[in-house]
């Protein structure tokens, strides 16, 4: 009976008018990109923080079948790669009242560019403190943070994690000027400000 029923189902789709699959793929890519952007608009800014996200990522990767029924944004590799905001800081990056900032460097940053940035930052009177995290440091931190999620760790190489300078500002109103000063320097990818309470790590990220 099963085979017979199967044949009936096959016949039931026998008047399939056909559809252009390449067009369908193109349209799905366009619509899917919009979906991604809606889900992730806050993530690239460096807010991929919190237990909820960690739990979501673990569940999302180990049980991909469960992801489709939940409306929570699934954590992508890209989101997981963003450093975690320190608990003593506001989750969202800020533009005003900035106490800390992170300068992410491009993957292609040269030693010369990095050195020039370091020199400039070390002489910047607007900064109370600074530290540096290399790609390798970032990767080690990433491995520790996602150690329960081997798929995620496997998906990322040290090359893909950005190196960064972490900065503490002397005065909050200096952020815009600081960003203007450094954003155009060679090797700088992005500069993100955070508002942190006393005691937060420099830069406001873990």
């Amino acid at each position: 009976m099963e085979q017979h029923l199967r044949d009936q189902f096959d016949r039931a789709v026998g008047d399939d008018p056909g559809a252009p699959l390449d067009e369908m793929a193109t349209a799905a890519i366009a619509a899917g990109t919009r979906l991604r952007e809606r889900r992730h608009y806050w993530v690239p800014a460096g807010v991929a923080a919190g237990v909820l996200v960690v739990v979501g990522a673990v569940a999302g990767l180990t049980l991909p079948l469960d992801a489709s029924k939940s409306d929570e944004p699934p954590v992508t590799v890209a989101a997981a790669m963003v450093p975690m905001t320190a608990p003593a800081c506001l989750k969202r990056p800020v533009e005003t009242d900035v106490t800390d900032a992170v300068v992410f460097l491009t993957p292609e940053v040269t030693d010369v560019q990095r050195a020039a940035l370091d020199t400039a930052l070390s002489q910047d009177p607007g900064l109370a403190a600074r530290s540096y995290e290399s790609r390798e440091d970032a990767f080690r931190r990433f491995q520790i943070r996602w150690k329960d999620n081997p798929d995620l760790v496997k998906a990322v190489t040290p090359y893909e994690l950005p190196e960064s300078f972490r900065l503490r500002l002397r005065a909050a109103e200096q952020f815009t000027a600081l960003r203007d000063r450094y954003a155009s320097m060679g090797g700088v990818q992005e500069i993100i400000g955070r508002k942190c309470a006393a005691g937060a790590p420099i830069g406001g990220v873990l």
Binding site: V112, A115, S122, G186
Partner: peptide, 20 residues
């Protein structure tokens, strides 16, 4: 932290902002 790796060479040769 990076003071040790600061090279005292010429200013940035070239901007490669498009790499990423």
């Amino acid at each position: 932290m990076t003071d040790s790796r600061v090279a005292t060479s010429a200013p940035p040769v070239q901007e490669i902002r498009s790499g990423w």
